[in-house]
């Protein structure tokens, strides 16, 4: 990413080579259609190129930044497709900066793709240890891109309950991963 910030196109090619195989299925899982996923993936890489300076303002964590960026862009697209309120929001530079570009916490540890792939088995086990309900709400939130209110409406449960379930899912996943 440092080289991308310095406008090194070859660095972006390298990022594409390494991440596209992960980002494409992620986006496809969120939006469903491969063509749309390809279009969004294209957008994601253009954002990486054009907004690399925004990355430079944050803690160095390429993996989390790129994955979150792709996920945010895909979810935004999915929400626009099913929600008129989301669709009415004009997608411009400011919108992209506020709602699409990830904001990493100051104390975040750096993760690379290699590290993520190394702990992939551990993560799978940690995920397996979650309850079905936890997995489901997590799926609804992360992949389906539903908001808290939408999940509550879909499951016909109070928003507060959804919050608690999401919290439990995320924290348990973290705990499980630490135990692995």
């Amino acid at each position: 990413m440092t080289l991308v910030i310095k406008r090194d196109k070859t660095a972006l090619v390298e990022i594409y080579r390494r991440y596209s195989k992960l980002l494409f299925p992620l986006i496809k899982k969120i939006v469903g259609e491969p063509e749309i996923a390809a279009g969004l993936l294209e957008e994601v890489f253009l954002i990486i190129w054009n907004k690399a300076h925004k990355y430079a303002e944050q803690p160095d964590n390429p993996y989390t930044w790129i994955i979150t960026l792709a996920r945010n862009r895909a979810v935004d697209s999915a929400r626009r497709g099913r929600n008129s309120l989301s669709a009415s929001q004009y997608y411009d530079d400011d919108y992209e900066n506020r709602f699409i570009l990830p904001r990493l916490a100051e104390g975040i540890d750096s993760i690379t793709l290699d590290l993520a792939q190394k702990i992939k088995p551990n993560f799978e086990e940690a995920l397996d240890k979650l309850t079905d309900a936890q997995k489901y709400v997590l799926h609804l939130a992360y992949y389906d891109g539903y908001t808290l209110n939408e999940i509550a409406g879909k499951l016909n449960i109070p928003v507060e309950t959804v919050r608690v379930k999401i919290k439990n899912a995320v924290y348990n996943l973290r705990e499980n991963l630490l135990m692995e």
Binding site: L26, T64, Q117, I119, K120, F123, L127, V170
Partner: peptide, 26 residues
Amino acid sequence: INKDELGELQNVAALIPIILEDEAPP
């Protein structure tokens, strides 16, 4: 807010798609 904890949670969430099967785009 515990920023370290928030950072950890961000990393955990970002790991979710790592279990997806690799698939090359067109």
